[in-house]
Design a protein around this nucleic acid. Structure first.
Length: 766
DNA sequence: CCTAGGCTCCTTTTT
DNA sequence: GGAGCCTAGG
């Protein structure tokens, strides 16, 4: 991070730091230094956006180590994401030098809880090798529970129950602790029963879900003071990142574990709390002083990231929230460019305008790596992607489906789980008929009945039933073959290295063949992913170490480095920074999102506003806000109004600009800053009239024909025949050359979008 | 047992 | 508009 201003610590302070032999302190400003050096007792570091919070955390750890206050294994450092944990570890190592003993207890809440539970599993009724289930397994298990209770899963979907149970777990509530009223809220009073049933089932499977990692270790702390005391003795210093994101369970967990020596340092920013919808309680950070009497509060308000106007705009916006701890960010740096606000006709023009501005920046020598488009909801991404493909502009979508969430990877893992633990019913169910073996519901039903009756795992039931006459001969033989395979693989796992075993299993089970035979375009990619999985396994000593990694560290390394524009959600952008940030879709209903307002009222609105604040403060030098007056929502074109957040920006620090593409194509851009307050009164603008016309059209149809590169693609010109080699233009894919002609279908090699089959009606000579 | 077609939902996302 | 999920029919 480059300070925009001259270094804040005074010369004498810097010199002092060197005298003490603590070189790392010299780089800090006085507030950061207080955050590092206030080691005794509870400390809350309120770190505004871009004020160097990670630096404080990492330097604090280095300082504790350097002063000999604690050894590396006596420090507990908790983060929310694996990414944050990794970054913290790397930066601490850079400060103290590698080779120093690793900080064992640095990790996510979940990873650390898992580590604690593996050590004391028996005390909470688990075996140390318990399985950690992900959302997918969780849902399937709940579906079974619903079925067992004869509940219509149409009316009461398993997904909704999963959310409810998660919400209870986030609040630290076991089935017995759920308030009666809430327990009855699901499925006409069955909610509590289902929760209890689900927990029972987990115990039988020797499994926990993510919420349980926290909840069970919390229970352990509560029920076993001796165990808790052991952790009190061990952890001399505790650090927590992103404290504003803690949920109640995490808060209770922390409070218990920090009770010992009370050397707790929490770092966070109440203005960046954007995870309320998954259980985060801003109140935790607001209440810190009451929770930890005698706590010192350190405020980091000197911003090293953004230029003045951006900071002013963000600060003014967030000031509309009530119930803040209150910080005033400032910078000694230049005022820089004002954030811009641009109105466009619709989302298509928005993508076009953003694309054009990016090309302009590119021409002026700006790095694409330093440009990001931050959207509220992921459906907004597609339009930008399409536009960028047309332009041949390299981009990267961040936060797509994660590697370990892909079906082929989960299937492969299910095979391995089956081999490594015979009792893993969920894994068995997942792959028993993948690839298709002719073992359908009917057979599985028989296995389930037997397994339930005898309280044995499904594989065991399968073994027994293949010896009886209960299953018809054909599936019986298949089933026997299959469990023989599993047992053979299990025997093999004694001798074969685990990654070779994985290869064998995937080959012999016919799983890789299944994809090889599949003709869909993504089959090749899936096979690639499977290879990548086997490669990744080599880095782990054994199968169980790998499976632990997979269940807790579900992510892929982003292929960073290459020159690309980033497209991501505002949530995903938290903690990142870019020279230029595009903020499209600032419209009522989308941002703030209607659902947020409907479900959570004022609190929802404030969280949305914090999200806007997060978005603006990602920008180092340029923030560009857009709103469209028409957007397709659920397939219907709707007229939209600019976001109230636009009107909450300080006019003095914001500039209204016309859309780059509007001037070219005669489209339409407007805002109250343009002088006419068109939106709060009257609705009589060309755009509004067109919006009304568009609305009265049959659904989904635009009034105007599609425009590309300033030309109208009309049917008459488009249907003229094309010959091989002709240069053509396509609405979505841009320019290309005709390769093959087959009636009205053409194979076209597009300059930027590869070769595709397209209809002649969508092409124009180019 | 498998597949096609109909129905429903649609914010954000980590572990 | 479209993905995913379930049901009905082959």
């Amino acid at each position: 991070m480059f300070p925009l201003s001259s270094a804040a610590p005074s010369l004498s302070q810097q010199a002092q730091a060197y005298v003490q032999g603590a070189r790392y302190l010299a780089a800090l400003n006085p507030e950061q230094r207080a955050g590092v050096e206030t080691l005794d007792g509870p400390v809350l570091v309120l770190a505004g956006a871009g004020t160097g919070k990670t630096r404080v955390l990492t330097t604090r750890i280095a300082h504790i180590l350097a002063t000999g206050r604690a050894r590396a294994y006596e420090i507990l450092a908790v983060t929310f994401t694996n990414k944050a944990a990794r970054e913290m570890r790397e930066r601490v190592e850079a400060l103290v030098g590698e080779g120093v003993e690793a900080i064992q207890w640095l990790g996510t809440f979940h990873a650390i809880s898992a580590k604690i539970l593996r050590r004391h599993a028996e005390l909470v009724g688990l075996k140390p090798n318990f399985t950690i289930l992900d959302t997918d397994d969780q849902i399937r298990l709940l579906k079974q529970a619903l079925k067992a209770e004869n509940i219509d899963d149409k009316r009461w979907p398993a997904r909704a129950l999963a959310h409810q149970i998660d919400a209870w777990k986030n609040r630290g509530l076991s089935p017995a602790q759920v308030p009666a009223g809430e327990a009855h809220s699901f499925a006409n009073g069955k909610g509590g029963v289902l929760y209890a049933l689900y927990q029972e089932r987990l115990k039988i499977l020797n499994a926990v879900d993510f919420g349980d990692l926290l909840l069970e270790s919390l229970r352990l702390f509560r029920e076993r003071p001796d165990v808790l005391a052991e952790f009190h003795r061990r952890f001399k210093y505790i650090l927590v990142d992103e404290y504003q994101d803690t949920n109640t369970a995490q808060y209770l967990w922390l409070r218990l574990i920090a009770q010992g020596r009370r050397n707790l340092c929490c770092v966070g920013d109440d203005d960046q709390s954007v995870y309320g919808w998954r259980g985060a309680e801003v109140e935790n950070i607001l209440r810190f002083e009451q929770d930890f009497p005698g706590a010192k509060i350190v405020r980091l308000e000197r911003n090293y990231r953004s230029t003045g106007h951006i900071l002013a705009a963000a600060s003014h916006l967030i000031a509309h929230n009530e119930g803040r701890l209150g910080k005033t960010l400032f910078t000694d740096g230049a005022l820089g460019d004002k954030p811009t606000v641009t109105g466009v006709w619709d989302s298509e023009e928005e993508a076009r305008a953003v694309g054009e501005e990016i090309e302009q920046l590119q021409r002026r020598g700006h790095a694409l790596e330093e440009i990001a488009i931050l959207v509220r909801a992921s459906f907004q991404m597609r339009e930008f992607e399409e536009r960028f493909i047309t332009l041949g502009l390299p981009y990267r979508v961040i936060g797509g489906p994660r590697f370990y969430e892909r079906a082929e990877i989960r299937d492969a893992l299910a095979y391995l789980r089956c081999v490594s633990s015979p009792a893993d019913d969920l894994a068995f169910e997942r792959i028993v008929n993948t690839p298709k073996r002719g073992l359908g519901d009917a057979t599985l039903q028989l296995l389930h009945e037997y397994a339930r009756r005898e309280s044995v795992p499904l594989t065991h039931a399968a073994r027994v039933l293949t010896e009886s006459e209960e299953i018809r001969p054909k599936p019986r033989a298949t089933l026997r073959g299959f469990i023989d395979d599993i047992e053979r693989w299990r025997a093999l796992s004694e001798t074969k290295p685990h990654h070779e075993l994985a290869e064998t299993v995937l080959e012999e089970s016919g799983y890789t063949d299944m994809w090889r035979e599949e003709k869909t375009p993504d089959a090749a990619g899936r096979l690639e992913n499977l290879k990548e999985l086997v490669r990744a396994m080599e880095e782990f000593p054994d199968l169980s170490a790998f499976l632990e990694h997979v269940s807790l560290v579900m992510e892929v390394d982003e292929a960073a480095g290459s020159e690309r524009v980033s497209i991501m959600t505002l949530h995903g952008a938290k903690g990142l920074e870019f020279e230029t940030v595009f903020l499209p879709g600032w419209e009522e209903g989308l941002f703030p999102h209607q659902r947020s307002l409907d479900d959570n009222g004022r609190a929802g609105l404030e969280e949305e506003r914090r999200l806007a604040y997060v978005g603006l403060t990602r920008a180092k030098r340029r923030a560009k806000i857009f709103f469209a007056t028409n957007r397709r929502i659920h397939g219907l074109w709707q007229a939209t109004m600019p976001s109230r957040f636009i009107d909450e920006l300080p006019a003095a620090n914001v500039e209204v600009v016309e859309s780059a593409s509007a001037s070219q194509y005669g489209a339409y851009g407007v805002s109250r800053f343009a002088g006419l307050d068109r939106y709060s009164s009257g609705y009589d603008t060309p755009g509004w009239r067109r919006a009304k016309e568009a609305k009265s059209q049959p659904q989904g149809k635009r009034a105007a024909p599609p425009i590309i590169e300033g030309r109208v693609l009309s049917k008459s010109t488009a249907s003229a025949p094309f010959e091989k080699g002709a240069r053509v233009m396509h609405l979505k894919f841009g320019p290309g050359t005709v390769q093959e002609v087959d009636g009205d279908k053409l194979s076209v090699a597009f300059d930027h979008a590869g070769t595709k089959m397209v209809k002649a009606a969508f092409l124009e000579r180019g």
